[in-house]
């Protein structure tokens, strides 16, 4: 009997600088992970902590993790050199439902552009029509763009300052697109305030919307309560991280998260 405690060993093959705050680690594993787009891994470095990451590429024994430097552990991970190791627990949580009928619009803000890529590739491989919107404050903060080009992803760019692509936020770009074109499904990963706006618009337009949330994940097993969404008592690590937007609008989604001590704190972004 083996619990989920088993860690997969992974070697860093390369470390690509995306922006001043974001790096992508390309990893090589001894065995491929049977992992659905949208599921996540707990990434551990002994003595340096363990954080949840939704991979930005899942291809056999090759995996990439796009990591934003937020705290100690993510800063350490983002600075790893080829040959160094990380240990992976998972896959954990529920991924995106990619078998819903119709066309898909994927909306990735910040590092969300990277972590939505496996979902795009999975849809494309099944011949499902999908368009990918990626966005950031400005050109400097766009992540994963060169990788998307390499992978042949059909994408459009929005920047808040108009330094590249559409001038404006992703919700604004989304609104402009859906006023002209019909999409049955939206998948989004990004800052929560952005996802709330998109989820609300999807309700208005009758579009199915799946959002992926980030919380402080401790156990990753659904038992410690660190990642709970009130008032429904949904746990991001096992009930999510992907949720249907309309099911969690009006909850802590986009408004509150819990800090390390379990105190509810306001989400600012």
């Amino acid at each position: 009997m083996r619990g989920s405690h088993y860690y997969h060993e992974a070697n860093v093959v390369s470390n690509i600088r995306e922006t001043i705050r974001v790096n992508t680690l390309v990893l090589r594993l001894n065995e491929g992970l049977n992992m659905a787009p949208g599921q996540f891994l707990m990434v551990w470095r002994p003595g340096e902590g363990e954080i949840p990451v939704t991979p930005s590429l899942i291809q056999g024994e090759t995996l990439s993790l796009t990591i934003e430097k937020v705290g100690f552990t993510s800063n350490r991970l983002a600075s790893l050199k080829p040959g160094e190791k990380v240990f992976l627990r998972g896959p954990l949580g529920n991924g995106f439902n990619l078998s819903l009928p119709g066309r898909y619009l994927l909306i990735g803000g910040g590092t969300g552009a990277a972590s939505l890529t496996p979902a795009y590739l999975s849809l494309a491989s099944k011949g499902v029509e999908a368009l990918f919107l990626v966005g950031a404050r400005d050109t400097e903060n766009l992540v994963y763009i060169s990788r998307l080009k390499e992978l042949g992803v059909r994408f459009k760019v929005a920047t808040d300052d108009g330094s590249e692509g559409f001038k404006g936020t992703l919700p604004e770009f989304f609104e402009e697109l859906v006023s002209k074109d019909r999409f049955e499904n939206v998948l989004t990963i990004g800052p929560e305030k952005m996802m709330v706006k998109i989820a609300e618009k999807c309700v208005d337009y009758g579009i199915s919307c799946q959002v992926s949330l980030v919380r402080i994940v401790k156990c990753g097993l659904g038992l410690c309560g660190s990642c709970v969404l009130d008032p429904f008592g949904l746990r991001v690590c096992v009930d999510g991280p992907v949720f249907y937007g309309e099911k969690i609008l009006g909850s802590d989604f986009g408004r509150f998260m819990r800090d390390e001590a379990g105190r509810r704190i306001e989400i600012v972004q």
Binding site: H5, M42, W44, G49, T73, R89, E260
Partner: peptide, 11 residues
């Protein structure tokens, strides 16, 4: 609380 990892699932 402590830094992660904080729980090990042994099965």
């Amino acid at each position: 609380g402590y830094e992660n990892p904080t729980v090990v699932d042994l099965g």
